[in-house]
Amino acid sequence: MHVTVPPISERVRGLALTAAPTHVSLDGTAHTARGAVDEAGRPLLLVRPGEPLHTLRDEAVVTVDLTATRALAGIDHPRGLLKIQGWAEAVPEAGLRAAAVAVAARCPDESLFAAVENDPAGPRLFQVDVAQVIYLTGQESGMLDAEDYFGTGPDPLLEAAERMLAHVNGSHREQLHGALAVLLGHPVRDAWLWELDRYGVTVRSGVEDPTLIRLPWPSPVTTPHALERALAAMLCPHERRRP
């Protein structure tokens, strides 16, 4: 059977990698959080002195809220909400630099330099060992246990796909509108690329009451070059239909 959408575990891993922590709940109380998610899928938290996690010396059960967004015309729109439940512990000294680099990519902060010094009185970096993930994305919701979450990875073309998606949304929306009119048989306005992956592309259409339109590739692509070609063929339907 031809697969037209990514497996949910793969999609959740991709959303997590592009998401940012917004809150962390400790002992039933939610606090503002900042940080990122590392390539293994674990949340990383930058904790300043005075914040509840800062004095933690062992590990603690926490829930980290992650929000993945897509910026359209300078406005962030939510793509997915994740609640990652697990155990927070300080990042081992050997992993501090890598953790700081990962956080800096999503959440630049000068205090990361001090966190790398591992001064107990300064800011600290924590990592969360995942027990389960509750997800809400579009019309899908559910839960993944740690085995399912860690048993897969994000789309291997994720980085290239995000670059291509941003380029089309920034420079080729009129072409996108024209292509959709040909493919769907009716005019489409206020359309943006919403998701792009090895199985196809999802278009978001409308402002007040947006709809999502999924356009799968004839077969899954396996390289960034093949993804670029598939996207170009979608944007140029007239050329694709020439004999």
Results as ranks from 00 to 15, higher is better:
G206I: 00
M143K: 09
D65L: 14
E51C: 05
L46T: 02
A104W: 12
R198L: 04
A233Y: 06
N118S: 15
V37G: 06
R240W: 12
A226N: 09
H77W: 13
D38C: 01
A19T: 09
D109W: 02
D119C: 03
Y135P: 02
P154Y: 00
A146L: 08
R214Q: 13
A233L: 11
T202I: 01
R42G: 02
Y149E: 11
A230E: 13
F150S: 05
G41K: 07
E93I: 12
T69Q: 04
T152H: 12
V201I: 09
L144E: 13
V188H: 10
T22G: 06
V133D: 09
T211H: 09
S141K: 13
I213S: 07
P108G: 01
A191M: 03
A30G: 06
A90Y: 00
R106W: 00
W217T: 01
G80N: 03
W194F: 02
P216I: 00
H23W: 10
L125E: 05
A88V: 01
M234C: 11
V188D: 09
R13W: 02
G122I: 05
D155L: 10
M234F: 14
S9K: 12
A161D: 04
T211R: 14
R34N: 06
V207F: 04
L72R: 11
A131I: 08
D197I: 04
D145Q: 02
V37K: 03
H54P: 08
P218W: 09
A105M: 11
V3T: 12
T211S: 11
L82H: 07
I75E: 15
Y199V: 03
L26N: 04
D58L: 12
A33D: 07
P220E: 02
E228I: 01
Q139G: 04
Q175A: 04
V128D: 13
A102Y: 05
G74P: 00
T152C: 12
E117W: 12
L235H: 10
V221L: 04
G151C: 04
H2T: 02
V133H: 08
Y149G: 08
S219Y: 10
A40D: 15
L176G: 04
H225G: 07
A94E: 15
R57V: 15
L136G: 08
A19S: 15
A179P: 02
T63A: 15
H238C: 12
P78R: 05
V207Q: 05
R229S: 14
A146Y: 09
V103C: 08
E228M: 08
H167D: 14
G200S: 06
V12A: 04
A30S: 15
A232V: 07
A230P: 03
P52H: 06
D119S: 09
E208A: 14
S9P: 01
S9W: 05
Y135L: 02
R241Q: 15
S171I: 00
E117V: 10
P6W: 00
P218L: 05
P237R: 13
R173L: 08
L72V: 08
T63P: 03
A232G: 07
L82G: 10
Q127W: 11
T69M: 07
A98H: 04
Y149T: 06
L26T: 05
L212P: 00
E162T: 10
I134L: 14
S141T: 13
A226P: 03
M234K: 10
L212F: 13
S219A: 15
V37N: 06
A104S: 14
P21V: 09
A131D: 15
N118E: 14
H23M: 10
L112H: 06
L144S: 10
A90C: 02
